[in-house]
Amino acid sequence: MGKIRIDIERCKGCGLCVIACQKKLIKIGDNMNSLGYHTAQINDEKKCIGCANCAEMCPDIAIEVWK
C-alpha cells in the first residue's frame, strides 16, 4: 500500500515518472499548469505500492511518496 502526491505546479510533464512506475499508474494528462506544461497524474491510486521509483526519477522533485 502506498500513496503519492504530485505537485502539478512543479511538474514539467517530462514523463520520466511515467516510465519509472512499473505498475503503470502515471500518465501525462490533458490539464495544464500555470507554466503551460501538461502535467503528470496518477490513476488507479489504490494500486500504488509506495516504491518511490517515480519520485526518484522526477527531476523537479514534484512527487512525494507515502508507504
Binding site: 505546479e9 512543479r10 517530462c14 520520466l16 509506495g50 518511490a52 523537479d60 512527487i63 511518496v65 507515502w66
Partner: peptide, 25 residues
C-alpha cells in the same frame, strides 16, 4: 502511512530552471 520520499532540507523551496527531463535536477 509514513512519508518515504520528500524534498531534501538542503534544497530551498525554489523550482529548478532546468529544461523538462534534464538530469541536473
Amino acid at each position: 502511512m509514513k512519508q518515504v520520499f520528500e524534498r531534501p532540507e538542503s534544497l530551498k523551496e525554489v523550482s529548478f530552471h532546468f529544461c523538462p527531463g534534464c538530469h541536473h535536477g
